[in-house]
Write a protein that binds this DNA or RNA. Sequence first.
DNA 1: CTTGAAAAGAACTGCCT
DNA 2: AGGCAGTTCTTTTCAAG
Lengths: 151, 151
Amino acid sequence: MIELDDIDRQLVLALCKDATQSAGALGRELGLSQPATWRRIKRLKDAGVFGPRRVDLNLEALGFGVTVFLGVKLATKGRVSLEDFERAVRAIPEVQTVQHVLGLFDYRLRVVAQDLPDFERVLRRRIMTLPGVGNVEANVVLSEELLPGPL
Amino acid sequence: MIELDDIDRQLVLALCKDATQSAGALGRELGLSQPATWRRIKRLKDAGVFGPRRVDLNLEALGFGVTVFLGVKLATKGRVSLEDFERAVRAIPEVQTVQHVLGLFDYRLRVVAQDLPDFERVLRRRIMTLPGVGNVEANVVLSEELLPGPL
DNA sequence: CTTGAAAAGAACTGCCT
DNA sequence: AGGCAGTTCTTTTCAAG
């Protein structure tokens, strides 16, 4: 497990807020030189503190105004059923995230759609027809807030 | 609403997979020159296609091995109750995401903890003591897969 | 849209304290 | 570990076809 000191923590938090900041700019905030800051960031990267760098899309601006979290309970749950379900769900373009979970449901899916009529189409023709689907619960997202996290 | 042509779509998808690629490298894949690729990316940025650039942390490597999605149903739901609940939930370090949702629950929370005993502590001392909490449902995340999305 | 090039800035390196 | 100075790379901008 990776241990971070105070300065590392501040660097990581600053990068979580805005990943476009340069090592020089970050260092100035903390009273560190550019190379010192860069070396710390490199050490953190090499230690695997950061996940793969991705861009996240502004889906609203692209016409996807509706986000729904679905809980899915499978009717049949053999090894084959799980693999069949996962393969089929990966083929649905509107599904953004697949979580295999423990609890009242077997899977949680993050699904986007253009609007509610479009979501109904996705739900009826894509989700409900998935192999082995039992119960489905839906939560339409009204707003989402990302917090600093546990550091 | 922003319209993308085929090349834009390929650029966006490539950046979703790996945001560290340079404009030159991206252009080479698509048979475009570096300036042409750069201009397209700039146009997309200015159009607001991309959300704020953040880094995502490898929480497992930092000692947070457990991720749980909680559904929370409030017992009392006036305007004040929602604001009180949101303010209190924002103060819990282990809460990563707060979603206000429509459906069987009022909120969905993404919570991380070091392990299951640690999660029990968070649940009993932080979550269950939130103002106005009624029913709580938990799904422990076993695995999570991010898909390309609806483009 | 392309190629070529130049300027600015950020990333990286070696050496020193 | 951090700072300084310098090199290399990418980004960013421009000129010309």
